[in-house]
Simulated assay, not measured.
Amino acid sequence: MKILETDRLVLRLQTTDDVAFILELLNDPSWLKFIGDFSVKTLDDARTYILNGPVRMYEQLGFCLYLVERKEGRAPIGICGLVKRDSLEDVDIGFAFRPKYWSKGYAYEAASAVMSYGKDTLGLTRIVAITTQENQASTNLLEKLGFRFERLIQMTNDSEELKLLVFDETENHIKKQWESSETKEILDRLSASFFDAFTNENGYKLNVHALSELFIPEAMII
């Protein structure tokens, strides 16, 4: 079943017909290095992974890691979607692509569609992501999507500290408001008023009393 579509890609539910691709993906050296060994070594293991992972999560929560196909030839190239882990409070985005499809913009295209789906359809205002500290490519992609580094965390039964990155719609909205031209103009006026209170050039008399209009009564200037 198709869930999302972009200019070049289709994101759909994984099925047991995808066992060969999933087996290959989960044993790719890049997956083993940056994500981990899921002990999926046979086609039967891959079938179990699909049924107990993405299929079950979609049935329970309405989202999962989707299979990503190129429209051209309908070749599977990776997975991308949303996950709810017991060890994390928030829903997180995940993605993994076969190396021969790296550096072609596919991961960003798929992840952007998933982020829009999460916000607009599922109503998520906060989405997180985890990645190893050495996986700079994933970090760069997440930052391009609007994520920011929050802290290092340690997952259950994992000795390695991972980076937790966060996308917060409310926080981003406030940030955009502060960066608006109108807000910048207000801040510039406040700054100018502050420094003018201490100016005594050319015979100008200090007007420190004007500071009471800029600060709350409890404020202290040191």
Rank of each mutant, 00 (worst) to 15 (best):
V166C: 07
D158E: 14
E143W: 04
R148V: 11
L124R: 00
L142G: 03
E150D: 14
R126Y: 04
T139M: 14
E171M: 06
E143K: 09
E150I: 02
D168W: 05
N157M: 13
F147D: 01
T125R: 02
R126P: 00
L162T: 11
R148H: 10
T170G: 12
Q133C: 07
L164A: 09
T132E: 09
D168A: 08
I153M: 04
F149V: 03
I127E: 02
R151D: 11
I130D: 03
L145F: 08
L141C: 09
R126S: 06
F147L: 08
G146L: 04
N140M: 09
R148D: 04
S159R: 14
T132K: 09
E143N: 10
K163I: 06
T132V: 07
T139D: 07
G146M: 07
V166K: 01
L152I: 07
L165Y: 08
Q133V: 09
T131Q: 03
E143S: 10
E160R: 15
L164D: 01
E161D: 13
T131H: 07
F167V: 09
N140S: 11
E171I: 00
D158P: 04
S138Q: 08
E161H: 14
L141A: 06
N135E: 07
R126Q: 08
L165G: 02
T139F: 06
K163Q: 12
E143Y: 08
F149G: 00
Q154V: 12
E161Y: 14
Q136N: 13
E150G: 06
L142W: 05
E134R: 07
L124C: 00
Q154G: 10
G146T: 06
Q133W: 05
L141G: 05
T170N: 15
I153E: 03
L165Q: 03
A129P: 00
E134K: 10
E160H: 15
Q154H: 10
R148Q: 09
Q154W: 05
T170K: 15
T131R: 05
D158W: 11
Q136I: 15
F147W: 02
E143I: 03
T125E: 10
S159A: 15
A129C: 05
R126E: 01
E160F: 13
T139P: 02
L141W: 03
E160Q: 15
D168P: 08
A129E: 00
L162V: 13
Q133D: 04
L164M: 12
A137W: 04
L124W: 01
T131C: 08
F147K: 00
L164S: 08
T125V: 05
M155W: 06
L164V: 07
T139R: 14
R126L: 06
T170H: 13
R126F: 01
L165N: 04
Q154F: 09
D158A: 12
L124N: 01
Q133P: 01
T131E: 01
R126G: 04
T131A: 07
L162K: 12
N157H: 14
T170D: 14
A129K: 00
L152K: 11
E160S: 13
E143L: 01
N157A: 13
F147C: 03
T125I: 03
E171L: 05
N135H: 13
T156A: 13
V166W: 00
Q154L: 10
F167N: 12
I130F: 01
E171K: 04
N135S: 09
T132P: 02
S138C: 09
E169P: 06
E160N: 15
